[in-house]
Design a binder for these strands. Sequence first.
DNA 1: TGAAAGTCGTACTCATCCATACGAGTTATG
DNA 2: CATAACTCGTATGGATGAGTACGACTTTCA
Lengths: 206, 206
Amino acid sequence: MVSADPRPRRRADAERSIARIVSAARETLSRDPSATVDDIAKTAGVGRMTLYGHFRTRPELVEAALVDALHDGERMLTGLDLGGDAQMAMNRLLASSWLLVAESAALLTAAQGVLTPGRLRELHNAAADRMEQLIRRGQRQGVFRTDLPLTWLVNAVHYILNGAAEETRLGRLDPADSPGIVIATVQAILAAPAVDGLPQQPGTNT
Amino acid sequence: MVSADPRPRRRADAERSIARIVSAARETLSRDPSATVDDIAKTAGVGRMTLYGHFRTRPELVEAALVDALHDGERMLTGLDLGGDAQMAMNRLLASSWLLVAESAALLTAAQGVLTPGRLRELHNAAADRMEQLIRRGQRQGVFRTDLPLTWLVNAVHYILNGAAEETRLGRLDPADSPGIVIATVQAILAAPAVDGLPQQPGTNT
DNA sequence: TGAAAGTCGTACTCATCCATACGAGTTATG
DNA sequence: CATAACTCGTATGGATGAGTACGACTTTCA
């Protein structure tokens, strides 16, 4: 399961080009999901032919960009404690991943239009699962609501994340305030409704 | 300010064609925001040339479809009581407009890619204002939270609406359940956080 | 019923973008 | 330093989709 290189021999400058291209693809597609191959090549400061030398088709390039972003996510979450109080864990998860998710929202859109749903799910599942497990744990702890479908809760969080990303990109939200706003909103969505005079399962919230 | 007809004389069959085209545009663009003029004409059961006879460019057609959808919204809200308790009013607003908003979500996306931001705002402002006023009133009543930017609250509701629309379209949400889920989620987002032992302004919730 | 209005197919131009072909020049690396 | 790997411009092919031109046919309506 170690990352196997089908192409072990590659020159240093080629490696550099690929890195610049992938980076440019992430940047460009995050601003405009329908960006042209030529746009991406220009942003990378590289001829279009060089790009095609490494990525045979546009979908292949988009996938590479998405995979790179997801790898960043995994790396970022390494060593992040998702145990303990689910609410706190969720806040930590959001605080550390919000920026990446925000930046990659449009990239995900681009991928949706170009990759098969199956392939997309395969790539994106790890991230989605993590969120789902955490919410489920919060439900068992009694701090997250259980009266709405789990799938909806997971996706509602995503929609809020992407929405906040867009608001930030459009300048309607101060990037400095965004994390706090996202956390507060997600908390509100997930929180178990504390009915007046019927404070949920007592004893579960230490 | 009455709707002025720049083209008073128009034959009955032309009127019919236009209606079918606009309807087809709404339907088609709501499924695929990047639908072709040809697609729309086919859906309308009309030749492409007929379509071009009434709408000179694609943007013009998209705008007509959006305007039609917005008119539907206005018509739907006529006679809807938005007074009284803001929370209840919001529930009524969502219950009656959710379906239309859901259907028009993708249409709005199409419009965003084709209309100038100014023009789009001009068309869409009435609907957005209504939501904003209602939230503001709820804040004055003490039932909606005031610790997040008003703009964000308005747009967060929109993102949830569109998200629910997408979930429904993808079959991940039962259309019968959607309204209830949307209402519950929006309530959670807007509700003033009832701090334990500090139940907000007493006397406002009769 | 006849002229104006509307319908609509075919064929065309124009622009954009993906992808390939070729080939000359440049750089890494054993 | 020689060769293989890489870069990259120009040109080309092919697909798609917007919008126009033209002209024959049909429908409305005064």
